[in-house]
Amino acid sequence: MANSNSPGNVSFPTTHWTSVYGVAGNDASSDALGRLLTRYLPALRAHLISIRLKPDLAEDLLQDFILDKVIKGRLISHADHYRGKFRTFLLNVLGNYIISWYRRQASMGRHPKRLTVDLDEGLVSSDGPGPTLAYDLEWARELLDETLRRMEQHLKESGRPEVWGVFTGRLLDPTLHEAEPIAYDVLIQRFGFQSPSQAANAVITGKRMFHRILRSTIGEYARDESEIDEEIRDFRQALEQAGAMNTQMLRKW
C-alpha cells in the first residue's frame, strides 16, 4: 500500500549506566549516571518534599547528594553490588544519605524539627501521597516528558514532521489538553498525504515510535526487557493510585 517503510523502525543508541559501572569513578559511567540523575532530579525532590523537608533545605540536600554520590563517584561503587531496580536503589541510597545528613545537621546544632514543614503551614497535607508514590509519579512525569522530547526531535531531524503532526494532532493533544482532534481534512492539507492509507501509516508510525522511545528511555536504567515491562506496569499502577487521590492535594507538592 502507500508506504512500505516499517513504521516506527528506528533505534536510539543510548549509554546504559549499568553497562559501564564496575569501575568506580569511571568517567563514562559518571556521565551516564549524571545525565540520569539530572533528568530525574524532580522525582528525588518530590520525595524529599513529601517527607516534609522544607523546599530550600531539600534543594541543599539534593546538591550535597549529587556532589557526594555522583561527582565523587560513590554511587557507582554502591551500584556495583546492587542487584535490584535502579529507581529503588537510588531511593535507598538517598534514604541513607538523608539519615547521615540529618545527623550532620544535628551535630552542627540545627534541630531536625526546624528542617521540616509543619502541617499547619499548609504546604503539605497529611493525606497527600506517600513518599514512594510522589517519587514514582514525578519519575513517570519526567520519563514521559523526555520520551516526547526525543520523539519530536527525532522526527523533525529525520524529515518526518508529518508523523509528529498527526501524532500530536490526533492523539497527544486531545489526551493532554482535551483538545478537539485536528480534522482529517486539515491534516491532509497540512501534510499533503496522497491517500488515507498514508495518513493512517503516519498514525501507526507515531504510535509505534512513541512505544519504542518510551521503552528505550526506560532502558537507560533498566537491566533488561522484563524490567522495562515491570517499570511500565509499576508506573501505570502508581498513576492509577495517584489519580484516585484528590488532584488538588497532589498539586500542592
Binding site: L144, L239, A242
Partner: peptide, 10 residues
C-alpha cells in the same frame, strides 16, 4: 496522574 496514565498508553 489520570492524564499521564493515558499518555503512557498512547
Amino acid at each position: 496522574p489520570d492524564v499521564l496514565a493515558k499518555v503512557m498508553d498512547l
